[in-house]
Design a protein around this nucleic acid. Structure first.
Length: 295
RNA sequence: GGUACCAUAGCUCAGUUGGUAGAGCAACGGACUGAAAAUCCGUGUGUCCCUGGUUCAAUUCCAGGUGGUACCA
């Protein structure tokens, strides 16, 4: 399995198409947002002709109304890849969703899925009484997690409590801290360009999205703005504009800023992988050489 | 050419009754186990335009210079 990752707008699509073509193989998208069929412009999915040229998996597979999470992604990819490896020596997994990438490459523990009733209840408690009663509750239910997690982060606190309540066991008891073994080898390639160039590319990409009609796409999704999938950059800022909270110019400015910050967080996540081989996205020949000599 | 005002962080600007400075925006670093394009934590990055003068001490006061803005010619 070859994984190609990097920050948004670095040039993953173009590069991965060339490599997939060269090795006559297919692409598995590792992107937590391109998976939703209603969000095309704002997530910069590959163009129709590109999708025709190379078979892509996990793009536009779900509706924004479907529930999905990282663990389901892990399972889906493991199942799909074992099927595809019957007819291919090499598969490409391409995308910038670090946590999804991590779950496929190293696995993620088997923890109960959220019970939405419990979660809703905890969210309400947090809104009405703040975080400290929840922290007290967590300390009682699971002192290990209480010590381990970021206690400033409401989502982490709520998640830990919700697992304790729904399973009757401490959240920490599900954490094996073990890497799952896969029946495929892994080569990780990371794409990297100077920060300044990346920001120029981001700005250019946002201009293209606006030309393609991002505003209109967002307007159609506006009624569903509460959905998790729509807490995505490019959409949530337009929702603020539609709701009269910011001007259109401010919304676009926010999209630019949030995209840059997102790119930084992606880079930060990918830096953790010691095995990552970094390339300039134009150096496709270099990547192909590296892949051919692997391992 | 004359007069007035201005020059401080990447940008817009505040401030120091003389003891080397801080807001907003932007930027940067980090964490991450089913919301992850989410969420959370952290960081001021400076020749206070330049050169002299006064002073124990000047970004601050004074003089000159340079650049800018406005008005008058």
């Amino acid at each position: 399995m070859l994984s190609i990752s990097g920050p948004t707008a670095v040039g993953k699509t173009r590069c991965s198409l060339q490599i997939a073509e060269h090795f006559k193989t297919e692409i598995i998208s590792c992107d937590s947002r391109q998976i939703y069929k209603e969000m095309k412009i704002g997530t910069a999915v590959p163009e129709y002709t590109e999708l025709q040229r190379i078979k892509h998996h996990f793009i536009g597979k779900l509706s924004i109304h479907d529930y999905y999470n990282v663990s389901m992604f892990e399972q889906d990819i493991v199942n799909l890849s074992s099927r595809l490896f019957e007819s291919h020596n090499l598969l490409l997994m391409v995308g910038g969703s670090g946590m999804y990438l991590n779950a496929v490459l190293y696995g993620i523990d088997d923890i109960p899925d959220p019970d939405m009733k419990i979660r809703e209840h905890l969210i309400q408690q947090h809104e009405s009484k703040g975080l400290s009663p929840l922290l007290t509750q967590l300390e009682k239910l699971d002192p290990v997690s209480y010590q381990r997690i970021d206690r400033n982060n409401p989502k982490r606190v709520i998640r830990a409590i919700e697992v304790c309540l729904s399973s009757g066991k401490p959240f920490s008891s599900f954490h094996t801290r073990q890497i799952k073994s896969r029946d495929f080898d892994i080569l990780m390639i990371g794409l990297e360009i100077p920060r300044e160039t990346l920001y120029e590319r981001i700005d250019k990409r946002i201009d293209i999205m606006l030309e393609q009609g991002l505003e209109n796409e967002a307007r159609q999704l506006h009624p569903h703005q509460g959905l998790i999938a729509l807490k995505s950059i490019g959409y949530r800022e337009f929702f603020q504009y539609f709701d009269g909270k910011v001007s259109k110019d401010e919304a676009i400015h926010l999209i630019r800023k949030n995209t840059r910050q997102y790119a930084r967080k992606q880079i930060n996540w990918l830096k953790r992988y010691k095995a990552m081989q970094w390339f300039h996205p134009d150096d496709v020949d270099g990547m192909i050489k590296r892949i051919e000599t692997y391992p």
